[in-house]
């Protein structure tokens, strides 16, 4: 699957959910880690942890509210619960349980939502987590991480477990292009500058980082040098990197595989508005549910492509 003339494909690289599952099984030697499942461990890849540490694995059934509540109780006992399901079922179905058992008492629960975004494809809109980042970001005290590829998901999984506090890690279903090598630096709360440039800045996360890099190559052929920031941590957001981008380049494009309201675009705009107003434009799913279709068709249809990012950059640069 390729997008127009670009080099982005969804048939290379590992899916981020797979990288999460592998990293979780690896981290599992820490006996404080317990894993909670809602009958989807073969979709989230927590099945690898289950096979290695069955006594610390709990499949509570198709019951996300109960799943999150139980995770809260385990956290209160000093365990490190990792609760994983489809991101939409976890965040949307169990939202009040997340408020009361995790966010409000500031508990050390790790929520991992897989099958985020429209790139899940055929299964259709009921299975797509496209409001999940907004929901997670609105919870006080939460850390929200949206990694770009498999290697950074591995790093994010370990980092999430090592630091204390409630966290949401967002993973996707399909294979995603490789952006990082294993071992590349990954620091929660700190954007990665994956390409330098002084004309315009593209701030992206998740699958849109590879698209942004591709768009930047396209822009370079027009003589526009784009800086690309991988803003894998949406909350807390890297204010310094955004301020610097606003000051050093002529405008900012924010690209994410999410609805328009309340996620990365909003977070960046708050920083820009308060600290260094500049021109901005936004590439996201907009304000609509998607449909069924192949992942590449949906990304094309809903405007999540390198071309859409290039257009957005042109809008920002237009005088």
């Amino acid at each position: 699957m390729t997008f127009g003339m670009s080099r982005i494909t969804l048939d290379e690289g590992d899916p981020t959910r797979r990288a999460f599952g592998d990293a979780l099984a690896e981290a599992g030697s820490d006996e404080r880690i317990v894993v909670l499942d809602g009958d989807v461990n073969n979709s989230t890849y927590t099945m690898d942890f289950k096979d290695k540490y069955p006594e610390r694995f709990f499949n509570v059934g198709i019951a996300e509210s109960n799943l999150v509540g139980v995770a809260g109780g385990l956290a209160a006992c000093g365990k490190i619960p990792v609760a994983a399901s489809f991101s939409v079922f976890l965040l949307a179905n169990a939202y009040d349980q997340i408020r009361m058992s995790v966010a409000f008492p500031n508990q050390n629960v790790k929520l991992v939502g897989t099958h985020a975004g429209i790139s899940i494809g055929d299964d259709g809109p009921s299975q797509m987590g496209i409001e999940d980042v907004a929901l997670a970001c609105s919870l006080p005290g939460f850390t929200v991480i949206v990694p770009a590829d498999a290697a950074s998901t591995t790093a994010a999984t370990h980092a999430m477990i090592e630091r204390d506090g409630p966290t949401f890690l967002r993973c996707g279903r399909p294979k995603v292009p490789v952006v990082y090598d294993n071992g590349d630096s990954f620091e929660v709360g700190k954007a990665n500058k994956v390409r330098d440039g002084d004309d315009v800045t593209i701030i992206a996360n998740g699958i849109m980082v590879a698209m942004a890099l591709d768009a930047a190559e396209g822009l370079a052929t027009e003589g526009v040098e784009a800086r690309v920031l991988d803003m894998h941590t949406v909350k807390p957001i890297d204010t310094a990197a955004i301020e610097q981008a606003a000051a050093e380049t002529r405008g900012i494009v924010v690209a994410e595989e999410h609805l328009a309201w309340g996620a990365l675009g909003a977070a960046v705009a708050m920083v820009v508005g308060e600290h260094h107003p500049t021109r901005m434009s936004f590439v996201n799913i907009g304000d609509t549910y998607a449909t069924s279709g192949k992942p590449d068709q949906l990304l094309e249809k809903y405007g999540l492509t390198p071309d859409a990012i290039i257009d957005a950059a042109r809008r920002v640069l237009k005088d």
Binding site: S126, G293, L298
Partner: peptide, 13 residues
């Protein structure tokens, strides 16, 4: 079924 443009989505709508 499940194809782009079809009202026969992966799950009923």
């Amino acid at each position: 079924l499940r194809k782009l443009g079809s009202p026969l989505e992966g799950h009923p709508n």
